[in-house]
Amino acid sequence: MTDGRQITGDDASRAAEYVLGLMGAFERRAFEAEMAESAVLRDEVRAWDEDLISLAQGFDEVAPGPHVRGALEDRLFGREARRGIWSSLSLWRGLAGAALVGAAALAFVLMRPVVLLPAGDAPVFVSQIATEDNALQMAAVFDAGAGVLQINRVAGAPAEGRVLELWLIAGEGAPVSLGVLPPERRGRIAVPEALADQFRNAVMAISDEPPGGSPTGAPTGRVLAVGVVTAL
């Protein structure tokens, strides 16, 4: 660790909690926002990462199956996403896992959604919907009491002549449209009462669609970004 820097015990233990993944979603985001402004905190987080890594460094090396490399290179450098993408639940879950900005989000991949959390007793659900490269990032907060979904698109925009459409996938169900995203970065989407209880353990996704949204009621364009919904 770097010597001689001024850091309080509280900051040091919070940095460790952040690295260990012990913070709740809200606390974590607040910490990340603070970290974006503070080199001292970033140094502290890095120091913990460097110190704790030796817990993982002694694990045995194991060769992964040879197919992993092929699949990886196909995915990064090969053709566009395969057809039938929407019908595969396991793929959905895989994507959701990949897009999940969880407790262990990398210190330097800072997401700073500025969304005011509603106060009240009704459940509140949050989701960070993002592409792998973070070119498209949106925070969504759903206040089940008010039936209002607040969105804040922090990066990315629809392609020329296209729109972005937001989807909710509950459990094993088919994607249900929550509507076309407004052109503004921030907005509110009214959620029908019937959908309000579908947010628990759901996944949200953004797809690329023609103007006016999907004509079929099911996604027709590419899945751009996916995020797991977390209850606060």
Binding site: G21, R46, D49, E50, I53, A56, Q57, R93, A96, G97, A98, L100, G102, A103, A104, A105, L106, A107, F108, V228
Partner: peptide, 23 residues
């Protein structure tokens, strides 16, 4: 980021695996 290279790589792997476990 100023990380040492293996720490950077292993941190990505550890964090992603933990996220998956929790998801």
């Amino acid at each position: 980021g100023g990380y040492s290279p293996m720490t950077w790589l292993i941190t990505i792997a550890r964090n992603h695996a933990i996220d998956r476990l929790r998801a």
